[in-house]
Write a protein that binds this DNA or RNA. Structure first.
Lengths: 334, 334
DNA sequence: CTTGATAAGTGAACCGGTTCATTTTATGTT
DNA sequence: AACATAAAATGAACCGGTTCACTTATCAAG
């Protein structure tokens, strides 16, 4: 492996000059710049980035912790992070934590040990379950929830849920089912809050039996749909806490012979690409995933570069998209 | 920042002993091991990984180059890579290249400069368009095509396409349309080859006008469906080169009033999760994405660790999955 | 042709681990 | 107790860049 000293010898200059030629070419004479260039070419010199980073103590890397990489929503957030990071000359180290706190610890350790400059967490913050130390680690929570104790970017989940459910109520629905995420998930909590707000502000009483717990994955949507179908009094509309479960629920109901939206209205959350492919297309809430990623990265870089010191919370607007899967309530259901 | 020398002083030992205690604890006496442990605790010492990697010259990191992170197929391959890498103690650095060769070069440079030990490329190899140097970089191509000149993992794309199209022919279809990827894409080439083989082995003449070029994305599927619909002699079945375009085409045809599969049969490729959600569910080819990722990582690690030197090609079996979107040919079409 | 100021270049020290030849200590044998 | 041998510990050198106090070259002004 050729080192900077080899180049120095070849060019007849000192290592300091070579180093400067590479990082601050404007501070080196044109004549010598050419010599350096020639020597580098001749020796096919590639600076050892590990040595560079080690000495200069900046990794130019940010870590992104993802609970599940095979999730389209996260993929889009990452895409946004990537684009901002790249522009700023930072690398993005992606950590698929698979909800394992051991892995999360490993990635946080990378920041503590200067392998990375900061971390963006895509797993929503849960009280008493944060592995992030209070100090010494620059961190941003993307797609977070209310009450995250460090810098975060999110949408108003409760408000969005409220909006969706209010729309269903205005369409005449009064028995509105919910397919939620896991109860302990912070997103579930926020969105359920919005659901209940919508009911109460329209004078509808909350019926606990209409909330079926899912886990944000496909099969839980299918199973929830079956449970609803078998109720003596099936709801006329179902608010699903993400698109995947909503699409599953539609399939579940269709297989039972119900028509959507004539017999039952369905709403989702996230606006995945699929949601506009599916037949019928899905009424849902669009989260600006890519922008959430971009903003998170910007916030983190500002912290790393010392431009910002206090913790901030950025709340993006969401978009409620009405498509074919919802319609006015009519008597005929089931 | 506390260094190993601080720990040595605190424990009353030499740096060498501390270092050994951390990497080969079995070679240090129990008594001193405890002293070291105590000193580390007391000083809250975190070894500087950059220094470690710099000195030991192994980054324990592999780079994965992805043309598009927001693509479910890639996400699954990555997931497989991650799991193998993690198990071997390697980190995975994800590079979203967005088909930009500049970015690809940057990531390859990371390997050349020892920031990473090897690279897995998820973009299929295209002749005269490879940025990988012939030597000095450990590389594996995942989800590759026939004729990749370095180690690779793939399925038999041509064979799978042949199988799909042969099935359609056996169901009585003779005019079979194709929605392809971009012509220059190697996957397009391989799959088209399979399509033509199926036709010729059943004595059906190839009709160029039945191949419509798409780009693997949703809208190109919609547009292709429209073009087929407007033909004087619309095909009775369409072979789509990925699921996304197949789902789009189904929607396109349905919107025109055609029924699937009664009026027109549709097949996809990839078996995305959505493909079993969609109504009707999609007949397609399943690629073992996760396994492709795992195998790629295993091959790369073997190369890095010097266990294997020659370049290898691993071809996974594919799975042809018949669902609801295809049926026997009947006269009534359109 | 000095002088002074600025630009360019030098090279040894440094970053914080790991490594290894060498010294010290522990263990076993007779 | 004396000696051989293995195990443990030592600490200086090293990795390949960057940094910075210092020297040398350059050039405009007097």
């Amino acid at each position: 492996m050729t080192t900077i000293r080899d180049v120095a010898k070849e060019a007849g200059l000192s290592t300091g000059t070579i180093s400067k030629a590479l990082s601050h070419p404007e501070r080196v004479s044109k004549k010598n710049l050419e010599k350096v260039e020639a020597a580098i070419q001749k020796l096919n010199y590639k600076p050892n980035m590990l040595a560079q980073k080690f000495r200069s103590k900046t990794a130019n890397t940010i870590v992104v912790m993802v609970p599940d990489i095979a999730n389209l929503f996260f993929a889009k957030v990452i895409s946004g992070i990537e684009s901002v990071a790249q522009r700023a000359g930072y690398n993005v180290l992606l950590g698929d934590t698979r909800d394992s706190s051991k892995k999360e610890k490993d990635f946080i350790r990378m920041v503590e040990t200067r392998l990375a400059d900061g971390v963006i967490n895509l797993r929503p913050y849960k009280e008493n379950d944060s592995l992030l130390p209070k100090t010494g680690v620059f961190a941003v929570s993307a797609s977070s929830c209310e009450g995250t104790p460090y810098s975060s970017v999110r949408i108003d989940n409760a408000g969005a849920a409220n909006k969706v459910v209010s729309h269903l109520i205005q369409q005449g629905h009064t028995r509105i089912g919910v397919i939620s995420g896991l109860h302990e998930n912070p997103h579930t909590r926020d969105r359920l809050k919005g659901y209940m707000q919508a009911l109460s502000s329209h004078g509808i009483e909350f019926d606990e039996s209409l909330v079926i717990e899912g886990d944000f994955n496909y099969w839980s949507g299918i199973s929830a749909a079956e449970q609803f179908y078998n109720m003596k009094n099936c709801p006329s509309a179902v608010f699903c806490m993400n698109d995947e479960m909503a699409i599953a629920a539609m399939k579940g109901f269709i297989d039972k012979g119900l028509r959507i939206p004539q017999d039952i209205s369905i709403t989702g959350f996230d606006d995945m690409d699929v949601s506009k492919y599916v037949v019928p297309t899905l009424t849902t809430v669009a989260q600006p995933a890519e922008k959430i990623g971009e903003k998170s990265a910007e916030m983190l870089l500002d912290m790393i570069q010392g431009k910002v010191t206090e913790t901030k919370e950025y709340v993006f607007p969401y978009e409620f998209i009405i498509r074919e899967s919802t319609t006015r309530y009519t008597e005929k259901a089931k």
